[in-house]
Computed example of a mutant assay.
Amino acid sequence: MSGENQRVDASRTPERAPSAAPAVPAAIPRPGSAPDAAPGPAAGPVSRSRRLASPALTLAAATAALAYVGTVNPYEPGHYPVCPLFRLTGVLCPGCGGLRSAHAFAQGDLVTALGANALAVVGYFVFAGFMVLWLVRAYRGGRAPRLVMKPVYWWAIGVVALVFSVVRNLPAGSFLAP
């Protein structure tokens, strides 16, 4: 083979002798311990306005959405789509009446909001509590709250939504129907 493309046959290359010890990182973190910080420029303290940006923008987006629903009446046909489950089966899902509930809530009519979808009103208050916690922590320089729950709690939320949906479709639970 002169100066042309030379190929190396992997099966004919000499084997390397194994090294005495495999390469091991300098420090192996123990399970459950936090890894060391990556080398690089040290992060300085984050300004208060930077910490408040995410919760403030989230709150602004939620407020804008609630304001829109508060001004565009869901009782007038043609503004919002109909629930596909209700349209196909006539069964009220856990979210049915949520827009009417949000409209009444935005108008300050809590009784009508509860009548349209009580589960949604509970969700509004849970969201409000989470936002207050997030804003306070961001203002004080703490970490953002994390929504980490055990699977049993997620299952419990699902069961509550299912029971709510079944009860509101029964004659005895018609008071929960929108």
Rank of each mutant, 00 (worst) to 15 (best):
A120M: 13
R51E: 03
A104Y: 05
V121E: 00
G78N: 12
L52S: 02
T112C: 02
A118D: 07
A156D: 09
F86D: 03
V72K: 09
G40T: 14
S165E: 07
A116C: 13
P74L: 02
K150H: 12
V69N: 02
A120C: 11
L110P: 07
A106W: 03
L52K: 00
P55G: 12
M131D: 05
F164V: 07
L59D: 11
V163S: 04
A138S: 11
V159M: 12
V82R: 05
V163D: 03
P45I: 09
G90Q: 12
F86L: 10
R146L: 09
V160C: 10
S101F: 00
P77V: 00
P39V: 11
A42F: 14
S54I: 13
T71V: 08
T89L: 11
G115P: 05
V132D: 06
G95H: 01
T63I: 09
L59H: 03
C93K: 01
L135I: 14
V136K: 15
L162E: 04
P151Y: 06
G158W: 10
A138G: 00
S101W: 01
L135E: 06
S47W: 05
P171S: 03
L119D: 08
W134E: 06
Y139P: 05
G123Q: 02
Y80R: 03
F105P: 01
A53R: 13
M149G: 10
A65N: 08
L162F: 13
G158A: 13
N169F: 13
F130A: 15
G90L: 04
L99I: 13
G129L: 06
P81S: 10
L114H: 09
P151R: 06
R168I: 04
V69M: 02
Y153T: 10
S165D: 06
P74V: 05
P77M: 02
M149L: 14
V166P: 00
E76Y: 13
L114K: 07
T63Q: 03
T58Q: 11
G129Q: 04
A172N: 10
V166Y: 08
V126T: 09
M149D: 00
Y80F: 12
A42Y: 10
L110W: 06
Q107H: 15
A60V: 15
V121H: 00
A104C: 05
I157V: 15
L52Y: 01
Y68D: 03
T89C: 12
V132L: 15
V148G: 13
H103A: 07
Q107E: 06
P41M: 13
P145E: 07
V163R: 03
L147K: 01
A113F: 00
T58H: 06
Y80D: 00
C83V: 11
S47L: 15
N169K: 15
V166C: 08
T71C: 05
C96P: 07
L59C: 12
A102D: 00
T112F: 08
L99Y: 01
N169R: 14
V148W: 10
A113N: 03
I157K: 06
A118R: 04
P84T: 14
Y80I: 01
W134C: 09
G123A: 15
P81H: 12
R51G: 04
F86H: 11
G129S: 07
A62P: 00
R100T: 05
N169W: 05
P45N: 09
V91F: 14
G78H: 14
